[in-house]
Design a protein around this nucleic acid. Sequence first.
DNA 1: CCCTGTCCTGGCCACCCGGCCAGTTTCGCA
DNA 2: TGCGAAACTGGCCGGGTGGCCAGGACAGGG
Lengths: 123, 123
Amino acid sequence: MSEDKAPEIVLALEIDDPALADRLAVLLGHVDGLRLAGPGEAAAATIVARDPRIIPDDIALTQRELDVLALMAEGASNKMIARRLGISVHTVKFHVGSLLDKLDATGRTDAVAHAARRGVIEL
Amino acid sequence: MSEDKAPEIVLALEIDDPALADRLAVLLGHVDGLRLAGPGEAAAATIVARDPRIIPDDIALTQRELDVLALMAEGASNKMIARRLGISVHTVKFHVGSLLDKLDATGRTDAVAHAARRGVIEL
DNA sequence: CCCTGTCCTGGCCACCCGGCCAGTTTCGCA
DNA sequence: TGCGAAACTGGCCGGGTGGCCAGGACAGGG
């Protein structure tokens, strides 16, 4: 393989948080094969991070509910979720019920759609 | 759990080009202080690269399938979809079956998630 | 003309889902 | 120390879901 082809990946940064932007710039600056884009330069990919303060969209979901929600978004059935998390199907259904209630959804499909719309999960 | 002064930065990848995604994953995997997000995990930042040439990844869906898909994304049951479209529940299930097949999904929730990921529908 | 694709409908059936009831433990907070 | 929240488990059951079978109507292209 020839290394002279396109060894460098150009990355652009669109980070609201200055501290995060700085840390990322420092970390990525050491990586061979990576380069940060200059002003106006076209990049192969862009690192984006919205300011957390702009997204106060926190529906109060517990950690376990987030686990279940993530697996639901993967299309997993209650049985699969139970197996993956090492808990019983009943417990999964319990968490799903809480999710439906908190997300104001009528079913698991609706719950995933609502969560994605509100930015709780990333599809 | 060890509590370091500088916590890991969780990065998510949204790269259309598999080759680019792979190179980035390999490069970033070796960086101290960086970690790639798992499925559905909230990330501090997201690396985005949308390849316009790959976006026309039009899965050949018929108009009726798009109708059903849109209502599925609203969380509607087969019965509701049937009533809304003025067709029978059996026909809805037929279209849902085609959707599951074309979208390579295991269920209606997975189908909606896949469709949203591929940009077929907008949540 | 026939053949293909889309759309539509019906029945049957195993399984899954969501809601209801009940209980346990652990943990943090007032 | 009591009390609530979170996590977990069980049974039960009506209705929803998805896979399978079958069929018909209708338009467009070889």
